[in-house]
Design a protein around this nucleic acid. Structure first.
Lengths: 213, 213
DNA sequence: TTGTTAATACCCCAAAAGTGGTATTGTTGA
DNA sequence: TCAACAATACCACTTTTGGGGTATTAACAA
């Protein structure tokens, strides 16, 4: 029997997981906590074979929670659970030594497989995220230099774009040549690896470059 | 016994819900579908007392799904289920006549209460969102100019744009002519009174047409 | 000192966006 | 039944983007 502790702020989800596993699955959710802060204390009292860790939690997220227990010298195979396929999260989870990564739209069968593999310290990645992961690790440099690599001037131009200005308007606004604006735009799009200004604005908002009203 | 259909793209969550309810709760999750598009067909075959509807779904969200079945003259008490407390979503759900609104971090007890109330066509709102809702309906009514005039198809095209697709890609994606996409784009920009796709995307995100990752 | 980067500016050109029309079909609501 | 609207599609046209270069200057760091 694999003993699992689930860390998830969505109580309903955790409750559901508890109910889902029957003895014949060889898996039992023994404990549930909804806040990562409580995990170290719990682990001093009970033993677990696998941690089923939600990544997206408000106070302390799954990655920070792993960090927390690892600092205390505790190492339990951990399966990260998420709704999003954010590359940043996958990366963070891997860096902290997560054994596997599975999406909340997986099937029960897949989850069982993931938990079993995790308990054996094997790696499991949900099929749906595979391509993304591999793409990421192939093209590592570019993705990372992205936002941080933008200069202040470039961010300024992004904000102008989001305000509906075209290159000519931006040029006259900033007292520079339209050629310069176009050069900046090109560099920005190259750095962020987008091909349309629509995608650029979306990314910029996601990354907090643009403040929404 | 209250018969419930759950519509949620997160299969694991739905599976969990199914397992969670025992006969003594007086609630049974009879069916689960992960895509709102399939709901009308399902409702022709089976009867349900309550719909437990996830709001955040990729292809067609919970609100659009309600709209879909209502257009077919079907009216089933619906409990909206969400992780976020987005005001836009609460509002959309209310406008479409949702009976209740509950967060995924509710407890099982709360969910049972919510389902029971919903089945009686009473309203249920999760305590955590109450303040927000009231603030909203006290506060404002003015800001959504233009948005409500957008058709579903138009919103779909906006989301494609935000994903970095150009007109040609969108056309091939949606199996329509590039001319049609350009017509939609023109109509959208006219309705929202913007002149560049950059400004369009910013506005669309501000107004909640696009969900950020 | 030398190397790197940010900001500036210009060239060319194909592709896409944006702007002005018109029009057909199907659905829906008054 | 009829008007309104959504979704579809096409034409013609101008402007803007996006992508390929290259280059100068100032500032800053190794």
């Amino acid at each position: 029997m694999i003993h699992v502790i689930i860390i998830d702020d969505h109580d309903l989800f955790a409750e559901g997981m508890k109910s889902m596993f029957k003895t014949k699955d060889g898996i039992e959710i023994t404990h549930h906590i909804s806040n990562g802060h409580a995990l170290p204390a719990l682990l001093e009292q009970v033993k677990a074979d696998v941690l089923l860790m939600d990544i997206d939690m408000p106070e302390i997220d799954g990655i920070a929670t792993m960090e927390l227990i690892q600092k205390q010298g505790i190492h339990i195979p951990t399966l990260m659970l998420t709704m999003h396929q954010s590359m940043r999260q996958v990366k963070g989870a891997l860096e902290k030594g997560a054994q596997g990564y599975i999406l909340k739209d997986a099937s029960k069968k897949e989850l069982v497989e993931a938990i079993v593999k995790t308990s054996k310290k094997e790696n499991y990645f949900h099929p749906k995220i595979n391509d993304q992961v591999f793409d990421y690790f192939r093209g590592k440099n570019k993705n990372n230099s992205g936002i941080q690599g933008l200069s202040e001037r470039e961010k300024e131009i992004i904000r102008c774009l989001a305000g509906g200005q075209n290159s000519k308007a931006i040029a006259s606004n900033l007292f520079i040549s339209e050629h310069t604006v176009k050069t900046h735009r090109r560099n920005i799009m190259h750095k962020l690896n987008v091909k349309t200004s629509a995608a650029l604005i979306r990314l910029a908002i996601e990354k907090g470059i643009i403040e929404l009203a």
